[in-house]
Design a protein around this nucleic acid. Structure first.
Lengths: 249, 249
DNA sequence: GGAAAAACCGCATAAATGCGCAAAATACCG
DNA sequence: CGGTATTTTGCGCATTTATGCGGTTTTTCC
């Protein structure tokens, strides 16, 4: 088989099946894997395929970009995100909710991080997928259109099966007396389950939401371990929480 | 044999077999390889053939000259997508897999459609979320990085709980004897479960994948109900499938 | 952190190529 | 028809290209 002919065949296969294995092609065409690899290299240089360990992919198969909406109070959330990332270590099992703050955290993750993320938030999952060394476990159930996360009994059941190292929640209201509260029944159920399933719980919110109340309670202050806002930890607004035993970042 | 005559013969062979070997032609015509090479050179200068190391290729066969920037077989997939959409009716429970063909279908859904989609494919879910009147149920489990869908025992268990009206699968290989086959074990398990959980199964593929085989079997032809390709249903390539009792669109 | 798979590197080999030249075939012309 | 010019062809040889193999490094997966 001629070299060019072979490359045409390979290209065809790649476009047909979206991926090819060097070993498989080597067997099919009856040439050494070195040859296949050299072919893939050349095709990759021309941009006809994307070379990966073990084979090659179709160039049209890796487009999954998500429109990065402009986020409300982006600057503050970015500060929060960076503080949150500092709590993450390699190898952790990380349970996360949804919301723009979580997305912002996902975008601030170190690129080479090795960790396992568990989430029902579609936008968050899309972000996690940009990290090649991270495993991602999706919480399945019906999607709540408001929050773009999966909610429902099945989702809660799946969360209950998990024991994560740490859980990150973006919260909508926190108050010394009423703890963390929210206004969506299903989301509240989910967050409760997440708090139960994590060794330590990190709540993230912009300072505006400090000392506010929403109709439905997720949990008391005792149930959370960290509180992250864009303010410095020694800000007077945060002192009541420090005194309540919460680690404020 | 005259030179012109010989070149006409060579050209004929090239167009017939898409490729010729200098050595082979040399034997057939009983002239030295130098002569063949000189002939090929001339034909190549006239653009009649493409000369490569060891012989020549038909210009029409050489796909390597085609620019790679346009998405492979996008047009075909769009045709397929539109046929697939015609099977969808308001109120249906629709189970779908992943892959570019499914994404294409998702993008072709009528904007006001009311239906429930069930899928483990993140890119597909993102597309479904653009449809305000659709419910979306996510199949949860670990994400397979290759295929961007959730795979694993938990995913299969969740699929087993479902009885959908219709299931759309983008498939990578189909053959009369071997049925539908694929090359990723986990994805195969998932597709098997999906087929079991749906009243009717729709397979979508571009015609090039017809009569091809991959290493792992998903199911025999009996397990599917519809086959959609970009070809008209009465194409000769598709007749064996029609005779096998599959509704071909 | 270690084993297995894949990729990389350099080298040897075999095939293919180009080139010069001479022989053969063909064309041309008186 | 014979002789010469021109084209075509084949061959030897140096050079380039393509390929496979062994050994080493890198990546991946438990």
């Amino acid at each position: 088989m001629l070299k060019r002919e072979r490359q045409a065949f390979i290209l065809h296969q790649v476009n047909l099946h979206n991926k090819v294995l060097s070993s498989g092609l080597s067997q099919e065409i009856k040439v050494s894997e070195d040859t296949i690899r050299r072919d893939l290299q050349e095709l990759a240089e021309e941009g006809k395929v994307i070379k990966v360990h073990g084979g090659a992919l179709s160039p049209s198969f890796d487009q999954l970009n998500y429109p990065s909406d402009k986020i409300y109070s982006h600057t503050q959330k970015n500060i929060i995100a960076q503080k949150a990332v500092s709590l993450i270590e390699d190898g952790m099992f990380i349970l996360t909710g949804g919301g723009t703050t979580i997305i912002e955290m996902a975008r601030n993750l170190p690129p080479q991080l090795r960790a396992t993320f568990i989430s029902g938030s579609i936008p968050a999952i899309v972000e996690y997928m940009h990290h090649p060394n991270c495993d991602i476990i999706v919480i399945g159930d019906k999607i709540s259109r408001n929050s773009k996360i999966t909610v429902g009994a099945e989702a809660i059941k799946q969360i209950n099966q998990i024991k994560a190292d740490i859980c990150f929640l973006g919260i909508n209201a926190i108050d010394i007396r009423h703890g963390i509260t929210d206004n969506d029944w299903e989301v509240v159920q989910l967050k409760k389950a997440m708090i139960e399933s994590a060794q330590s719980v990190v709540c993230m919110t912009i300072a505006e939401k400090i000392n506010t109340i929403q109709p439905i309670q997720i949990g008391l202050l005792q149930s959370i371990d960290f509180l992250i806002t864009e303010l410095p930890p020694d800000s007077p607004e945060l002192q009541p929480y420090v005194e309540a035993g919460i680690k404020v970042l």
